[in-house]
């Protein structure tokens, strides 16, 4: 640390100027989103955003100027929670298997594999989703053996017209599965580090008092590693809510028929904010992206995502502070 010397050298000034570039970039990027969403807010108002149905460039009835983001917000919540519910047990068991329970030889390979998997781009996961569709989603959830007419006559099936729109290649469930695959390699190492950083004396004291390893894991190690668990959940939420490619490919772009009927219907194409924004800007099927009201609405959905992300970060910081205070006292 050289900051004890207060003198301003040329090197220090130069480094400071360089260090201000990322800050400027951040401010410009965030400012861009806020500046562009002003038109959407001014034209439609916040209330209309939450109630109006979306009519994007690709819906059947295209009436520009109605962008209700309420279904998209629900979609983000659904798919992120689903991804987290799928990813968390796997991350936790990966971390525990790599550190505790006397499996020293398992730790290094698991860490290497996780760091390799964390480099896989999201577009690859999106491309791979077709294999899960053909081997899991279609036989299990779409009644592939049933002809459409037979689906229509099934007892208790409410909407016979819906038979053609069963989840075949796009649904929140599929998106949740692949977002979980995306975030597991980022969540598990954080929990793993936290488990490693639990003081060795605590573990040894617990074992010396006659507790089993399982008891030590549940009552000593995992409470001690709660900090890492909070960090892992945070990064999982941020990555899952921010990803555009997987949610566009596996869920679809725009939910244009209002909210799903049971609100938790994970078999529908309930597009989250990210892919709704991507769809509103356009640039698909050979078209060129538009800078009109769709762009403004997309900026507003990006702004909502930013607010969500910083709320999550703030909440995580508060939780971490509360945990450390409780852990010390």
């Amino acid at each position: 640390m050289l900051n004890s010397t207060k003198n301003w050298t040329a090197v220090r000034a130069g480094l400071l100027i360089v260090a201000l570039i990322p800050v400027t970039m951040f401010l410009l990027v965030v400012g861009n989103v806020i500046w562009n969403s002003r038109m959407a807010i001014a034209t439609y108002g916040l209330g209309n955003f939450f109630s109006a149905k979306i009519s994007g460039p690709f819906s059947a009835v295209y009436t520009p100027g109605q962008y209700g983001l309420y279904p998209a917000m629900l979609g983000t919540l659904l798919v992120v929670l689903l991804a987290l519910v799928i990813a968390f047990p796997f991350s936790l068991t990966l971390a525990v298997a790599a550190t505790e329970f006397s499996m020293g030889w398992l730790g290094r390979p698991i860490e290497l594999l996780l760091s390799i998997f964390s480099g896989i781009p999201d577009i690859i996961y999106a491309l791979l989703s077709v294999f899960v569709v053909t081997s899991f989603i279609r036989p299990k959830f779409a009644g592939i053996q049933l002809a459409d007419s037979l689906i229509a006559t099934l007892p208790g099936f409410p909407k016979p017209m819906n038979a053609g729109t069963l989840p075949l290649n796009q649904s929140t469930l599929l998106g949740g599965i692949f977002l979980a695959l995306l975030i597991i390699p980022f969540m598990a190492p954080l929990i793993l580090d936290a488990i490693r950083n639990v003081p060795q004396q605590l573990k040894e004291a617990s074992l010396a008092l006659g507790a089993t390893r399982w008891f030590t894991l549940r009552r000593v190690i995992l409470p001690g590693a709660l900090n890492g668990v909070v960090a892992a959940v945070t990064i999982g939420l941020l990555k899952a809510s921010g990803d555009v490619v997987i949610s566009s490919w596996t869920i679809g772009f725009i939910k244009d028929n209002g909210l799903p009927n049971p609100l938790w219907d994970i078999f529908e194409r309930n597009a989250p904010l990210t892919s709704t924004g991507a769809g509103l800007v356009g640039g698909l099927y050979g078209a060129s992206p538009s800078m009109g009201p769709g762009f403004s609405a997309a900026s507003f959905s990006a702004l909502l995502l930013l607010v969500f992300a910083f709320a999550i970060i703030g909440l995580a910081n508060l939780t971490r502070r509360w945990l450390s205070r409780r852990y010390q006292s």
């Binding site: 990322p22 410009l28 990027v29 921010g242 990006a302």
Partner: peptide, 26 residues
């Protein structure tokens, strides 16, 4: 402060960056 900002650059949604790219091109 700089550390927080550079950390936040990783945390912001990729949609924000895509919109920034379109704005920069325009």
């Amino acid at each position: 402060f700089i550390r927080f900002i550079t950390g936040s650059l990783r945390a912001i949604s990729l949609l924000v960056l895509a919109l920034a790219a379109l704005t920069l091109a325009n």
